[in-house]
Structure formats: structure tokens, C-alpha cells
């Protein structure tokens, strides 16, 4: 929230960093991050050396045209992929210093990741899909796991679809199962890759208001989207183009998704 209150239009991470250190800690810090994909003789430079810092409690949207490197970047932030070069510090710890098991634990306990292509387990009910991250957390009991999964599905409006398998759900419903799965482990950082891409305006506003709610509770959110109106709900926008950051600005007029939702005509639903 402190960041959201700042009226300054920022392009210099130096200043941003200085101002925020006083109030909250850096949860994501990347520096000169590069990611190359080699396919045979050809090399794709998906990320060409990007740097920025995200503080705890920020709600950042990442925008950019298709193929600009948004998913590539988010995968690295989610500890699902390794950068070719550059540094990534998550909560003050460099990713390079973490073992595979430590990364798994971070993914399990700290991060909620929503995939662009959902990645639900086929032939598995919604509730079991949502329970999945908790199965790998030995601190959560069977009963608690079930309770939390049901609660997460309720939050995304799927309380009546607990036992449906992905094949029995619409695209938007599958997307919401994926969102519920990312919430179930009470993450401190949510990374969403076009989490509302398949939802109608009303449902996506509902999801955005849910995210705003979570953000108010202190959860940091990084949200990839193509839709400019979705970006107005966030506190900061980073725009990528061809693997570079071309814009990084704070949003001085954050809209409330709940209010926008109320303004929508009823027949829209």
C-alpha cells in the first residue's frame, strides 16, 4: 500500500528502491535478467537483461504484446525456470544459492502460481486439484487440507463444482480452479499468468476484486494481462517489449474492482 500511495511517476528503480526500503522489504529483486532459448543453431533472446524490484504488498501488472517475454519472466519469478544470466533475489535470498529442494519448498509454501494454460490434473476432481499443493506440505493435516481446498473454491465461486473433473468444467471454470489452487497454500506472493484471460467481464472483475482483497491483506501480486482495464486495478504497471522493459509506472488512480462490478449492468451476467 505505501507504494500505491506514492504519486511519483517512476522510471528509476534507484529512487523507487530508496523510497520503499523505509516502509517495506523487497520481495522480488531481479537484476540484468536474461533468458535465452537455444533451439538447434538458433537462439531466441526471450529476456534481454531486465531489472526491477517489487516490494511486499505491491500489485503489479505486467503487460506487453504476445511473445514479449511475460510468461518467461513470470516462470523465473515463480522459481519454475532458471535465468540464463543475471540475478534473482526472492525475499532477500539469491535463487542461485537455493537447492532444488529449497526451491520446491518456496514454491510450495510461499508462491501461488497461476498458469496461462491452467495445468490441471486430468481426470481429477476440482477439489483434489486444489488440494494438490497441500499434499506436499506435511504440516497440513488431511482435514485441514480438505477445508482449505473447499474454502479456496468458494472464494472463486465454484462451491458447487467440487467434484467435477476438468473435462466437466468450462474453460473459465478450469481457470478458476487453477486460481483456487494458487490460493490454497496461503502464499505471500501470487504470480498470475493471464488469470482472467478466459473469463467474461463480470467474472474477471469478481476475480480482480478477490485479488484486491488479498492484496489488502498484504499479499504481493504480479499479474500478467493483455487487458488495459485490468491494469487499472493494480498499483503498478510494467510493460515489456521484445524482452526489454519499455515502461514501468505507478498507477495513481487505482480503481476498485468491487465498485466497477457494481456498476456493471445486471443483464451482463
Amino acid at each position: 500500500m505505501p507504494v500505491a500511495l506514492m504519486k511519483v511517476h517512476l522510471c528509476h528503480k534507484d529512487r523507487e528502491g530508496k523510497d520503499n526500503n523505509i516502509m517495506s522489504k523487497e520481495i522480488i529483486k531481479i537484476e540484468n535478467l536474461k533468458r535465452d532459448f537455444t533451439m538447434g543453431t538458433e537462439t531466441v533472446h526471450a529476456l534481454k537483461g531486465i531489472s526491477y524490484t517489487i516490494h511486499e504488498g505491491e500489485f503489479v501488472t505486467i503487460m506487453g504484446s504476445s511473445g514479449s517475454g511475460k510468461s518467461t519472466m513470470l516462470n523465473i519469478l515463480g522459481c519454475l525456470d532458471q535465468p540464463t544470466s543475471g540475478t534473482y533475489e526472492i525475499d532477500g535470498v539469491s535463487m542461485k544459492d537455493l537447492s532444488r529442494n529449497e526451491l520446491a519448498t518456496i514454491r510450495n509454501e510461499k508462491i501461488g502460481f497461476i498458469f496461462q494454460s491452467y495445468n490441471l490434473l486430468a481426470r481429477t476432481s476440482a477439489i483434489e486439484n486444489v488440494e494438490l499443493p497441500l499434499l506436499y506440505n506435511s504440516k497440513v493435516s488431511t482435514e485441514e487440507r480438505r477445508e482449505r481446498a473447499i474454502k479456496a473454491l468458494e472464494m472463486v465461486g465454484l462451491a458447487d463444482r467440487l467434484h467435477h473433473t476438468p473435462a466437466q468444467l468450462s474453460g473459465g471454470q478450469q481457470q478458476r480452479v487453477a486460481i483456487a489452487r494458487s490460493l490454497v497454500n496461503n502464499p505471500v506472493l501470487i504470480l498470475a499468468d493471464e488469470a482472467t484471460g478466459n473469463l467474461d467481464t463480470r467474472t474477471s472483475y469478481e476475480i480482480m476484486s478477490l485479488f484486491q482483497e488479498l492484496n489488502k491483506q498484504g499479499i504481493t501480486i504480479t499479474f500478467v494481462t493483455h487487458e488495459p482495464d485490468i491494469a487499472t486495478f493494480s498499483s503498478r504497471t510494467i510493460v515489456l517489449k521484445d524482452g526489454n522493459i519499455i515502461q514501468d509506472y505507478l498507477n495513481d488512480n487505482i480503481q476498485s474492482a468491487a465498485e466497477e462490478l457494481a456498476k456493471l449492468p445486471k443483464e451482463d451476467h
Partner: peptide
């Protein structure tokens, strides 16, 4: 891949 992504360790 998915199991690892949601926190499953290699072991």
C-alpha cells in the same frame, strides 16, 4: 512438472 511446480520435491 506440475507436481514439482506446486512444491513436490524430486524425491
Amino acid at each position: 512438472g506440475l507436481r514439482m511446480a506446486v512444491g513436490g520435491k524430486g524425491s
